[in-house]
Amino acid sequence: MTRALAALGLLLVLAATPAFAVSNPSEMLANPVLEKRAEAIGMQLRCLVCQNESIEQSDATLAAQLRGIVRRRVLAGWSDRRIIDWMVARYGNFVRLKPPFDPMTYVLWGAPAIALAVGGAAVALARRRHPVGPDPLSPAEQRRLADLLK
């Protein structure tokens, strides 16, 4: 019981919040609602320097600068969409951690469906090749089997 509780506690701690690099309180907006929005936007934007972290998680100076830009634009009343578009206009769709559904990413987003179709086709093909087992034994064969097993 205690062990289960400890495990649950650990899980909660690990799952609680992603590690934010915004450790410097002077970077954060005073208004918690706006700060939360800025964080949510920042979490969707890739740090171009480390490439696998969001700008909220990265310690790179460029990421810090982009965080500042997001926050100033949030304060200025820009919509999330407009801020992200501003970034995309400069850095391309690569800056978005969640790529949009467009011709470049059809294969990416369609991958699960494609995998399912290929797997389904393979199963169907295998089924067709070995349709059903042999015919059931005739009464004569069953008698013979019974004799043999005696």
């Binding site: 171009l48 320097v49 850095y91 391309g92």
Partner: peptide, 12 residues
């Protein structure tokens, strides 16, 4: 301040 660089999309 690197602001022009951001408008270029510079990342290093």
């Amino acid at each position: 301040d690197g602001r022009t660089a951001i408008n270029f999309g510079l990342y290093g």
